[in-house]
């Protein structure tokens, strides 16, 4: 079936199977492989993207449900080749290790910051509840998001 959607500001016409998931279209049709699949059941959050500004697990959404909507993927965070503040804070705080959860973490954080520009640590934890990370223990990720939110961050490295 033919459908159109806007991804990272560009409108695309795509021909999709009715059963295709949004993640399949993003990765396979549009080549936006930054969005990762870690579980295929909406439990790990690696595939999180923004659909009309809300964080969505793209493995749980049919592509057709995104018809006419605005989708933002991790590839859409940088502008003019320059990384966003959130991306830069992830790097600066050591919030990136293996990187497989990173795109989803960034998108959940982006959705949070768009809704609540100055979240508390607890609000960040709640917003990231659906994003699993096996490498970092989350502390550096939370510190990065706090830094990107403009609040003074806690010590990023957890040193006592």
């Amino acid at each position: 079936m033919k459908m159109s959607l806007t991804v990272n500001g560009t409108r695309h016409e795509v021909d999709v199977r009715p059963t295709a998931r949004l993640i399949d279209v993003l990765r396979d049709e549009l080549g936006l492989t930054g969005t990762k699949e870690g579980c295929g059941e909406g439990e790990c959050g690696a595939c999180t993207v923004l659909v009309d500004g809300k964080a969505v697990a793209s493995c749980l959404m049919l592509a057709l449900q995104a018809c006419g909507k605005e989708v933002t993927t991790v590839e859409g965070l940088a502008h003019g080749g320059e990384l966003s503040l959130l991306q830069r804070q992830f790097i600066a705080h050591g919030a990136v290790q293996c990187g497989f959860c990173t795109p989803g973490m960034l998108m959940s954080a982006q959705a949070l910051l768009m809704e609540n520009p100055t979240p508390s640590a607890d609000e960040i934890r709640t917003a990231l509840a659906g994003n699993l990370c096996r490498c970092t223990g989350y502390s550096a990720i939370i510190a990065a998001i706090r830094a990107a939110s403009g609040r003074e961050a806690d010590r990023a490295d957890g040193s006592a």
């Binding site: 936006l32 930054g34 990762k36 590839e75 992830f90 990136v96 990187g99 497989f100």
Partner: peptide
């Protein structure tokens, strides 16, 4: 930061 952090935060690293 880890050496390939910029690639990882921009979704550019090819797994």
């Amino acid at each position: 930061p880890i050496a390939d952090a910029a690639l990882k935060v921009s979704g550019a690293l090819v797994y």
